[in-house]
Design a protein around this nucleic acid. Structure first.
Lengths: 225, 225
DNA sequence: TCAAAAGTGTTTGTACTACACCCATGC
DNA sequence: GCATGGGTGTAGTACAAACACTTTTGA
């Protein structure tokens, strides 16, 4: 058995769409490039895949070194292969998306970028490479995923109120959802568990606190919203 | 702007799960390897991605040269990156799945394989590499895709009867579906169009012939079966 | 006692399920 | 005329949509 020929292989990178939710706004993390190509433009964070690394490893490395984050919800999105997507040469991008609670982390620009910032997903600037397309794909995936898997909870605190969850769904889906029907459906789906605790110290009635149901039943629940 | 460093990059291949439907059986195309690793074992067809090729190009090349097929329904599935998946070294596989009407093609083993054959998806042999996992992923994707996109029609002739379509859905989903409800739902979804023609020369009542609706409405229809 | 947000239940309509009969054709 | 498969309709049920009142809290 021979090892691989020393073919030339396309370069291989992971690019990350990191979603964060804060104060009723869904945001994505962008960094401003210090170097050509696309110097001083905003792009998705990413890194070349090292020979011994899994994609997950590469993603963790990006999140850790560039952003000071780690151990997030991470899911492979799609692999982008347009030959002209990188002016430096043939480059394949395996896109992942991550969900973050920004209040748990503090972003750090690192040495490789001018700046790192959260952008409201409705107000993102022009992006370098084909990152606009990757971003759009990620938004679509998130919207469809949230309907059949309790994925949004990564964006919230461990304990959250029904209203917070409701607002998150409205924000991600971009529609308004009847509060009472939403409650019934999300409880029927058994995505969440009532902890019995309440959030204290508010002006109004103290809302019940829920948590994500770790042991959720496997049968592909479809949340018809 | 500098070109890429001469990093060593993982080798990059496409692997194809080619589904065919014939005589009420959903099959997958496997080839028997002539060389190590996994010599004389069955694997999914695949090829290394050339520097100037898109993944689609690579897939077409596989289908054309190894199988004598081309221009099929083709969709990217997932990118597999386990470091040990290929004993020759680090190799990334971008998996695609394809849908074929086997009666339109004749498979050819080519020079690279001992044999190429259709296998009933319920009776596939042990597969080399991580191809079992790729195959399983493809089956799941096909099952979920068929419920919200008229993807199955690629597996049938251009004109087909309602019964043929019904049997195809039962076969792919592995469940039995009420004939009359199926007809109503598939027509409501506007996946297909009645051509007004009938299939002649049968022993029994001549069934109406349908065709795939090219201009189907975009609003993500969910076929609740 | 008032304002603001949280919790709860009912009615209505639509869509899925289950099911049985008639029709067309070739032998 | 009969066997075989193809086409059609309806009653019951379950779930989603629409909607309003009561409760809790702090000020």
């Amino acid at each position: 058995m021979k090892p691989f020929h020393s073919y030339q292989n396309p370069s291989l990178a992971v690019d990350l769409v990191v979603f964060g939710y804060h104060e009723n706004t869904l945001s994505v993390l962008l960094l401003n490039r210090k170097e050509e190509p696309f110097k001083d433009q905003w792009v998705l964070p990413g890194a070349f895949v090292q020979m011994q690394e899994t994609f997950q490893d590469s993603c963790s490395r990006v999140l850790q070194t560039k952003l000071g984050m780690d151990k997030l919800y991470l899911e492979q999105l799609y692999t982008f292969d347009a030959p002209e997507r990188d002016p430096r040469g043939r480059a394949i991008a395996v896109a992942y998306y991550a969900l973050v609670n920004p209040s748990k982390f503090e972003i750090v620009a690192g040495t490789m970028a001018n700046d790192v910032q959260w952008f409201d997903i409705h107000k993102i600037p022009a992006l370098g490479f084909d990152h606009k397309e990757i971003f759009t794909t990620a938004c679509q995936r998130l919207r469809s995923k949230i309907l059949y898997f309790p994925v949004g909870f990564e964006l919230l605190n461990d304990l959250f109120t029904m209203t917070e969850l409701h607002e998150l769904y409205e924000c991600i889906l971009g529609i308004s959802i009847d509060r009472r029907n939403f409650r019934r459906k999300i409880l029927d789906a058994e995505f969440i568990i009532n902890t019995g605790k309440k959030r204290e110290g508010l002006q109004n009635r103290h809302p019940e606190l829920y948590k994500f149901n770790q042991k959720l039943k496997q049968n592909n629940f479809q949340l018809n919203i």
